[in-house]
Design a protein around this nucleic acid. Structure first.
Lengths: 146, 146
DNA sequence: GTAATACCTAAACCTAACTTTAGGTCAAGG
DNA sequence: CCTTGACCTAAAGTTAGGTTTAGGTATTAC
């Protein structure tokens, strides 16, 4: 069992954030001894899940819903699974979008490298996609798809 | 040249967002005819860059800085390149984190599939990482790295 | 002529996710 | 004793990134 300060250190989070999560009922089974919060394995695992679901773009109120399902027992396994499946799909499409943005960034790095060498953007602006060197062609096409 | 409404449709953004971006000086070269905004190729490319930089986690005020550099001419090529390089690095690490979160989601999908079949989590809770089936072992390890 | 649209501005409003503040309890150290 | 530090609460404040509102202009459709 850990105190709020220890957990804050372990997860590199401010204490105030942990209190905020608790107030948002993200630790439905959190115990206290004479008013002091006692974090156990359940809460540590909850925190790992919270960090994951936040990264997956979920809001606190929806994470709370999941924590409530966990406290409700086996009857909610299908709901919980469906939620993770839905998040997985969402996340995969987010990662795909990020990779397209990354290709745009890579293209821009190449572009400004050329611009620095040329001293201007004249040649670059005249370049049509077909004329791009092989090294950057795919990156350009990915970045500009849709 | 396009009106604000046409651009809004092209990028699937509310008109109010385009006005907001303009107010934030994200289109430093935007022209107007008798008060009406006229979006040209410069602004369309700016919008593509804005969407990319936003996805890369940049704030409006930093995107504005970049747009100002663009308006300043060739002397700012190195700054612009450095900014894209820095964003590229940042984005790569973000994507890596997202992939770890995705592995956690995949693991949880598997976990609840098992829990549904078993009707409880007893076997799953007793399972130590080494006992995990091959199909999910790597995913588990990635998800729980760090 | 008047009504519906598309445009404009400034300023107020909104939301999520925290963070900060103000005030209080309790245990240990000097 | 008294002060330092870790804990507690409720409530107010903060921030980014928009969105909405209220009021106005100009053009086109009937």
């Amino acid at each position: 069992m850990y105190t709020i300060g220890q957990v804050a250190e372990m997860f590199d989070l401010p204490v105030s954030t942990l209190r905020y999560y608790d107030k948002q009922r993200l630790f439905p089974e959190l115990e206290r001894t004479s008013g002091i919060r006692r974090f156990g394995d359940t809460e540590l695992e909850a925190l790992r899940v919270i960090e994951c679901l936040k990264k997956a773009g979920m809001e606190i109120k929806d994470i709370r819903l999941f924590m409530e399902w966990c406290a409700e027992g086996p009857s909610t396994y299908p709901k919980r699974k469906a939620m993770f499946e839905e998040r997985k799909t969402h996340m995969e499409s987010e990662i795909a979008k990020m990779n397209r943005a990354l290709d745009m960034l890579k293209f821009k790095c190449w572009y400004y490298e050329q611009a620095i060498q040329d001293g201007n953007e004249d040649r670059l602006k005249a370049l049509i996609p077909d004329d791009l060197p092989e090294e950057i062609k795919d990156t350009y096409n990915n970045a500009h798809a849709q």
